[in-house]
Amino acid sequence: MIRRWSPEGLAPPIGQYSHLAAVPADHELVFVSGQVGVAEDGTLAGPDARAQTRQAFANIGRLLDSLGAGPEHLVKLLTLVSGTEHLDGSRVAREEVFAAWYPDGDWPAHSLMVVAALARPDLTVEIEAVVALPRR
C-alpha cells in the first residue's frame, strides 16, 4: 500500500497534497505522460481551465482503468497551468475530482507550476502522474 503523509515539524500543505509519498518495494512504477483536456474524439473539453482540468483527470482515470488501478495508486501528480488566470478554474476542478477520488483527504504528492504556455495555445492545463502498481 502506498503511504502518504505530512510529518510534524513542517508547515501543513497549502493545498490538496501530502508532503511525502512512499511506494513499497513490491510495486512497479508507471509514469503517465501529461494529459490535457482533450476528449477521446480529439475535441477540446472547453476553452476554460475548469473543463480542461476535469477532462485531463478523466483521461488519467481511463489510463488507471487500463492498468487495473484507481486513484489510490497515484503517488505523484504534476499540474502545469498556462498562466495565473487559469489557476482558479483548475483548482476548482481538482477539488471536485479529489472530493470523489479521495473523500478521506489521503491525497498524493502534488506539485503545481504556472508556465508561459503549453504545447498548443488553446491548452490551459496539463497533468502528469506517477502510478504505483502491485507486482503481479
Rank of each mutant, 00 (worst) to 15 (best):
V114P: 02
R62A: 08
A25W: 10
V114W: 02
G83T: 04
V30G: 05
M1K: 11
A39V: 07
R50D: 11
A117F: 09
E96T: 11
E8Y: 07
H86D: 01
A116Q: 13
P24S: 07
V92D: 13
V81W: 05
I60Q: 02
V38P: 01
G15K: 04
R91W: 11
M1D: 13
L29D: 05
P103G: 12
E8N: 06
E72G: 15
R54I: 06
W107K: 06
V97C: 03
S111G: 14
G89K: 06
A58N: 14
L44T: 15
I60C: 00
R120W: 03
V75H: 04
L20E: 11
R50G: 08
R136Y: 08
R62L: 06
V92F: 07
R94A: 12
H86M: 01
A129F: 04
V92E: 13
R4F: 11
A39C: 10
L29W: 02
A93P: 11
A21G: 14
H73L: 06
M1Q: 07
G15E: 07
R3S: 08
R62F: 00
V131W: 03
V32Q: 10
A93R: 08
T124M: 11
V130G: 06
P103E: 12
R120G: 02
L118Y: 09
V115N: 07
A22F: 14
A11N: 10
G34E: 05
V114D: 03
H73T: 14
P47F: 10
E126P: 00
L133Q: 14
Q52H: 02
D122K: 13
P134E: 15
V115Q: 06
V75D: 00
Q55G: 04
R4M: 08
L63E: 15
I2E: 03
P47G: 11
W101V: 03
L29F: 00
G105H: 13
D41E: 04
L112Q: 15
V38Y: 02
A49L: 10
E40A: 14
R3M: 08
R3P: 00
L63R: 13
H27S: 11
E40T: 12
R50K: 11
V131G: 06
A56I: 00
A117R: 15
G83N: 05
Q35A: 14
P12H: 00
V30E: 09
P108Q: 12
M113R: 13
